[in-house]
Design a binder for these strands. Structure first.
Length: 106
DNA sequence: ATAGTGACTGAAC
DNA sequence: GGTTCAGCCACTA
């Protein structure tokens, strides 16, 4: 299985209305420093409707992927799940943060 | 096999 | 405390 698919697996496990970070996913997969690769994987998942890439943001809760997601599309999807978004940033990010390492306990 | 790139992150100035 | 620099991993040319 490609590293990409592993990323998608975790991404698909993100509960509705919650968000996570590239670093968290990377850490969960073992490559804590491979956050960039995670983002890259999500880039490929962009065309996959099965993967909620819109729930993945950078470490500060900013929709860094919005630019590659199709503009406001990402923001709309998040708000549709009850996630408040302001200036491409997730409000209450700290509360909505979902860490696979903690939630899934490996 | 080497070099370059990218939705990031952490440390230094 | 905000901005800048360098390091990381996986993938493509």
């Amino acid at each position: 299985m490609d590293f990409f698919e592993q990323v998608w697996e975790v991404t698909k496990l993100i509960p509705e209305g919650r968000v996570t970070t590239y670093g968290a996913i990377a850490k969960y997969l073992g490559t804590a420093r491979g956050a960039r690769v995670v983002g890259w994987a999500l880039n490929q998942s962009n065309m996959k409707a099965d993967v909620p890439a819109h729930r993945v943001v950078n470490r500060v809760g900013m929709l860094s992927g919005a630019a590659h997601f199709g503009g406001e599309q990402m923001k709309v999807l998040l708000e549709a799940e009850g996630i408040e978004v302001k200036s491409n940033k997730v409000l209450k990010f700290k509360e909505l943060f979902w860490d696979p390492v903690t939630e899934l306990e490996v």
